[in-house]
Amino acid sequence: MNKESKCSCGGVISANDPRFEELKEYIDSLKDSKGITMPVLQEAQRIFGFLPLEVQKFIAKEIGIPVSEVYGVSTFYSQFNLTPKGKHKIAVCLGTACYVRGAQAVLDKLAEELDINVGDTTPDGLFTLEATRCLGCCSLAPVMMIDDEVYAKLDNISVIPGILQKYYEQRLPE
């Protein structure tokens, strides 16, 4: 399969976006530190929400490493996003404690309800569904988090549609 180069970022950030200034200031503040690739990527993700080519190219230039290296780092760690995420992030804990208490069923149910695969975002941009490592609330297993809200003891997966409904209703009418 041949593939033309294309930016897979999904979003367009123009070169004179003022947020690059903000990122530059942060990078400059670290000029005395070593090994700053990760902190810079973390800050860039905080500022832009994700790490498209434009941002990675900028970082590579500013800290003097190849773009491929920035990309290599950004794809190694699971917390870096190359594409924009949904408005709400659903994270289902797949830590062992949750798993033995049925987290897989929770994840499957969500995938079915949202009609997306794990890791994907719904076409309306409302939800991103992710499986995550131990959230550290093993006593509440199985758990999921929607943004900062923890939903605990989801033994009965039939409650899930109701939980999602809340977020659908919050959406402002267009």
Binding site: G35, I36, M38, Q42, Q79, R133
Partner: peptide, 23 residues
């Protein structure tokens, strides 16, 4: 220094690589 979601970074040499800014 913050990790970014990689279990292997609990391993000493991987952790060092991570602090150094690498994969």
């Amino acid at each position: 220094r913050l990790g970014a979601g990689a279990f292997v970074c609990g391993e000493e040499t991987a952790l060092i690589a991570s602090i150094e800014g690498f994969r």
